[in-house]
């Protein structure tokens, strides 16, 4: 219930109406969106019970490792009601063709694979918010100072997921495991996404805000 309350408001991409349509415009819109979402994610993380009790250094390390997984999981959940489209924001929905034109076809294919998995599982909002928090706590940062404290956070979130499943999904005793088994594909997709946006940064054609740059650099 804490995680449901902590869930951020809807976000809008608001593409610049004065800019002519192009791949650069689409990527600029997405990078701006990601920068604003990062601010929201940092605020959200503070509402995860136990997160703020970690050292500031460990809070930073978890977010630096997991931010793209959290961004992608949010896109995946928003896209569940759609067919073969990715809801980057309420006003920014991309289909296969648009993704191809923007150079994001690989990412589109990977994220859709995740969407299909969660559709098949009929994932619920309670499960989605818990998985997002688990992705953060389980981000495998190599720079954790107090692993015991991070393990405690992982255990608490894992327990929340198990409690939810044992009360709401008694018909499938393996449901929690099935949900956790989606996380490797999420990690793989996020790694690809970070590499892709890092190479866009290196090419220097797309303007990027400071927080997005800072987080991209922390991952590479």
């Amino acid at each position: 219930s804490h995680l449901l309350v902590a869930e951020p408001e809807k976000i809008y991409a608001m593409p610049d109406p004065t800019m002519p349509e192009s791949d650069i415009k689409a990527l600029t819109t997405l990078c701006d969106l990601a920068d604003r979402e990062l601010v929201v994610i940092i605020g959200w993380a503070k509402h995860i019970p136990g997160f703020s009790a970690l050292s500031l250094g460990d809070q930073m390390s978890l977010l630096q490792s997991a931010w793209m997984e959290i961004l992608i999981l949010s896109i995946v959940f928003r896209s569940l009601p759609y067919e073969d489209e990715l809801v980057y924001a309420e006003d920014y929905i991309m289909d296969e063709e648009h993704s191809r034109l923007t150079g994001l076809l690989d990412l589109y294919v990977s994220i859709l694979q995740l969407v299909r998995k969660y559709k098949k599982l009929k994932v619920e909002k309670e499960e989605f918010v818990t998985l997002k928090a688990i992705a953060l706590a389980n981000s495998d940062s190599m720079h954790i100072e107090d692993m015991e404290a991070v393990q405690k956070l992982q255990d608490a979130l894992h327990e929340a997921l198990q409690d939810y499943e044992s009360s709401q999904h008694q018909e499938d005793p393996r449901r929690a495991g099935k949900l956790l088994m989606t996380l490797p594909l999420l990690r793989q997709t996020a790694t690809k996404a970070v590499q892709h946006f890092y190479s866009i940064k290196v090419q220097g054609k797309v303007p990027m805000h400071k927080l997005f740059l800072e987080m991209l650099e922390a991952k590479v």
Partner: peptide, 15 residues
């Protein structure tokens, strides 16, 4: 940590 100053600042903000 100096390199990650925005993240650091946002985490320290109370809101």
């Amino acid at each position: 940590k100096e390199k990650h100053k925005i993240l650091h600042r946002l985490l320290q903000n109370s809101t």
